[in-house]
Nucleic acid binder design. Sequence first.
DNA 1: CCGACATATAGATATATATCAATATAAAAA
DNA 2: TTTTTATATTGATATATATCTATATGTCGG
Lengths: 97, 97
Amino acid sequence: MDSIGFAKAMADETRQKIMQLLCCEWLCVNDIVERLGEVRQPTVSHHLSILREAELVHMRREGKQSFYSLNQDAVAVCCGMLMQDFAPEKLALDIGG
Amino acid sequence: MDSIGFAKAMADETRQKIMQLLCCEWLCVNDIVERLGEVRQPTVSHHLSILREAELVHMRREGKQSFYSLNQDAVAVCCGMLMQDFAPEKLALDIGG
DNA sequence: CCGACATATAGATATATATCAATATAAAAA
DNA sequence: TTTTTATATTGATATATATCTATATGTCGG
C-alpha cells in the first residue's frame, strides 16, 4: 500500500462511512447497505472491493454472507507513512522529545 | 479541514510530488514547474490552489513571485484525525501504554 | 505608460470515478 | 433439482477531476 493508494481509497464519503461502520465490528454486506440507507447493494459491493484492494478491510465468508471489518493496523501504518513523508519534522518532535 | 477534504487533497500523484518538493523548503511556482518537469504551469497553479484551499501549504508573495511551503502541522493534525476516526484502538495503545 | 515576467483564471477536453439497474455467481433451503 | 437469498460483476450514465492552451491579472523596470 502506497500513500496515493491509501489517499484515493479514503477520498470518498461513502467509503469513509462504510469504514466508520466497520471500525469496531464485523458486518455483512446487507447490514452495511441497511445502515447506509441511501446506497444500493452493488454500490456498496463496489466500495468494499476498493477497500479490499487497498487492504483497508478484513473479509470473512460465512455461508452465503461476506463479513467485513476495518483493518485498523493498515490504517495506522498508512497514517504513519503519510506522517513520515509529509510531516517528518513533527514526527521527529514526537520521537525526540 | 475534515478527513474527506484531506484525503481528496492527497489523492493525486502530482499533488503529492509537489508536497514532497515543498516539504522542507519554500519554492516559487516556476521552481516547482521546473522540478516536476512534465507538468505545465497552469496545472501546477491549479494543484497549488487545491492545496491552499485545504490549508496544506503556506503561501507568501514576494514581488511578482509566490512562494509556497508545506504546512506540516496541518498534515500532522489531519493524520491524527484519521487515526482517531479509523484506528482508535491503535491510538489507545499509543496513549495507554 | 509600456513591455517583460510570474502567477492565476477561463474554457475545452479527456479520463476517472460513483452510482444505478440488470444479471451472474454461489450457497442454503425446500 | 428448483427456489430463495446474499453478494459480486457487467454495462450504462452522470459527475468529478486533471490537464492543456489561451488569456487575464498583477508587478517591476525602463
